[in-house]
């Protein structure tokens, strides 16, 4: 089967994000960039499914030339080939979904797995727009019943169950108050949540091999997509800071403060 996965370039989730004084953006100096953690989980799931069912994993990223680093990372993890949509401007979920739709119509995968959100704009929308515009099934927030310390996880078992006839798949989703299971008709869009899997590290041979794997370059114009964003960011600001707290010496002092000062117990 053919599985398409995404690899958005985002700021390292461990970095401290600071807003520029004029609110026009974030301070770029000193930031490191990574593959969006949810996308990395999507890549891993794609690789596990391809290992189990046979087939290839195509990884897509949209952005300037630097996103090739994230594509190489996914190729080093084991993806078969990469598609780079060379796009310099701002990207919002509608423009990303529009471009991905065009890529999916060219690649015709059996399944596309996207991160459920990217950790920069935290919108959690692209997969859903994409599924609707393609008229496909969607299973967002894909997870699994087994924990990340289970034997199933250690055995790198895929969490998404493809039916024997290859026409549908069962996906476990994290929702409020529990887990729900859906049966989606293939091709479908799945978006990955945190506990779908633990992504593998790229091995040294994997990194060497990735250097020779193909990256196909496309542009919004070549795909016939107008990628101009529909969301205008007016201003960014830092959240209001919490006022400094105090350290208490013992439990009795903590109890007294909670009862008499904060009056919350």
């Amino acid at each position: 089967m053919k599985i398409l996965v995404t690899a958005k370039r985002v700021e390292d989730p461990e970095s401290k994000i600071k807003v520029k004084a004029d609110g026009s953006g974030i301070v770029q100096e000193g930031l490191k960039y990574k593959i969006n953690p949810f996308d990395e989980i999507a890549v891993e799931e794609g690789l596990r499914l391809a290992a189990k069912h046979g087939g290839e994993v195509v990884v897509v990223s949209i952005g300037p030339k630097e996103v090739q680093e994230q594509l190489r990372h996914a190729l080093a993890m084991g993806a078969t080939k990469a598609v780079w949509v060379n796009h310099g401007g701002a990207l919002d979920p509608m423009s990303a979904a529009g471009l991905l739709k065009a890529v999916l119509e060219r690649e015709k995968p059996d399944l596309a797995i996207l991160g459920k959100q990217s950790i920069d704009d935290d919108q959690n929308q692209t997969g859903q727009y994409l599924a609707e515009w393609l008229g496909w099934s969607q299973a967002t927030f894909a997870s699994k019943v087994e924990s990340l310390e289970s034997d199933a996880e250690k055995a790198k078992t895929p969490a998404i169950h493809i039916a024997a006839d290859g026409k549908s798949a069962q996906v476990v989703r994290e929702v409020d108050n529990g887990l729900t299971t859906l049966s989606v008709k293939l091709p479908a869009i799945v978006t990955s949540d945190l506990r779908l899997n633990l992504p593998r590290y790229a091995s040294l041979p994997g990194i060497m091999k990735a250097k020779n794997k193909p990256i196909e370059e496309l542009t919004p114009a070549a795909l016939g997509v107008d990628a101009s964003p529909q969301i205008q960011v007016v201003k960014l600001s830092a959240p209001p800071p919490r006022k400094a707290g105090v350290k208490v010496g013992d439990v009795q002092e903590l109890f007294t403060k909670l009862k008499n000062e904060a009056k919350v117990i």
Binding site: D122, L236, P239
Partner: peptide, 30 residues
């Protein structure tokens, strides 16, 4: 997504929402 507040009036509404895990608060227009 995750709108925290609104400002503006009529059809010219600005939505306030978190980005980067709440490290940044963004005012956006649709």
């Amino acid at each position: 997504s995750d709108v925290l507040a609104f400002s503006g009036s009529g059809t010219d509404v600005t939505f306030t929402r978190p980005m980067w895990a709440g490290s940044v608060i963004a005012d956006v227009k649709l």
